[in-house]
């Protein structure tokens, strides 16, 4: 299958006023690719996602996202906090995010598929933190996005919950093959779910290394992940600060 570029960033430069946060960043993501951005906290990963999402238009350079529907660009964004509307039920939170013209019945089928049926008519406050994250991820998938941005969506969950959600997330992604940009600071997480890992430097943000995860998805057990991580550390000693 010929690859199609889903996202192309060229000469991106962003300055908050106290020196550049992002300086001359170039980045290409192919359609259907799951790319992990790995970098120290505060390196500007969230800023980068906000620029891509169009929440902040004060930058120079080019951000091109290919969209299937020429009228509207669809971006699914799983924020670090779930950002659900507390005064709307899970079902309403999901259907409100659907773009105009998308069949609202789609959401009911989707709720079924992802196993949210039991909580669909509850308010987010009554659900666990993990469940709120899940709903927020489902919302990002439900709009059938051109590009899916995830900003550490599994951070500060307890380990078993995070593991369960990670597996569930990969399944969700495999069924639809959306283009994903996934921000994390956890190398093992990145190895487990990514096609490719971009190692980012601290501010100003640049790409230090661009490494494909050379393990087939079905073989990504804890041992394989551990040995790949060791391999990276010996192969790229310069990245040790990040790993």
């Amino acid at each position: 299958m010929a690859t199609v570029t889903a996202l192309r960033i060229q000469n991106l430069h962003k300055d908050h006023g106290r020196g550049p946060v992002i300086d001359d960043l170039n980045l290409t993501v192919e359609s259907g690719e799951f790319v992990c951005l790995l970098g120290p906290s505060g390196c500007g990963k969230t800023t980068l996602l906000q620029l891509i999402a169009g929440l902040d238009r004060d930058y120079s350079g080019d951000i091109e996202i290919s969209q299937r529907d020429p009228r509207v660009l669809r971006i699914g964004y799983a924020f670090q906090e779930p950002r659900l509307l507390p005064w709307r039920t899970v079902r309403d939170n999901l259907s409100l995010a659907l773009p105009a013209g998308m069949n609202p019945n789609k959401i009911n089928r989707f709720i079924d598929t992802v196993g949210l049926n039991e909580v669909a008519d509850q308010y987010p406050n009554t659900l666990s933190v993990g469940m709120n994250r899940r709903v927020s991820l489902v919302r990002a998938f439900a709009i059938d996005p051109d590009l899916l941005l995830m900003d550490e969506p599994l951070v500060s969950l307890d380990a078993p919950t995070a593991r369960r959600l990670r597996t569930w997330l990969v399944k969700l992604w495999e069924a639809r093959a959306h283009t994903v940009i996934f921000v994390t600071h956890d190398l093992r997480e990145a190895i487990e779910i990514g096609d490719r890992i971009l190692f980012l430097s601290a501010s100003p943000l640049e790409v230090l290394a661009d490494i494909p995860v050379a393990i087939e998805r079905k073989n990504r057990n804890p041992e394989a992940i551990e040995s790949f991580s060791t391999h990276l550390k010996t192969r790229y000693p310069s990245l040790n600060g990040l790993l």
């Binding site: 169009g54 929440l55 669809r74 964004y77 924020f79 906090e81 509307l85 995010a97 773009p99 105009a100």
Partner: peptide
């Protein structure tokens, strides 16, 4: 602000934003 950003990303538009994000 976080919910307003969410509404912007998901293209709520003025009417939906008023009704479901601001009004409550």
């Amino acid at each position: 602000q976080d919910l307003l950003e969410m509404a912007e990303v998901y293209r709520f538009g003025p009417v939906k934003t008023l009704q479901h994000v601001l009004w409550p």
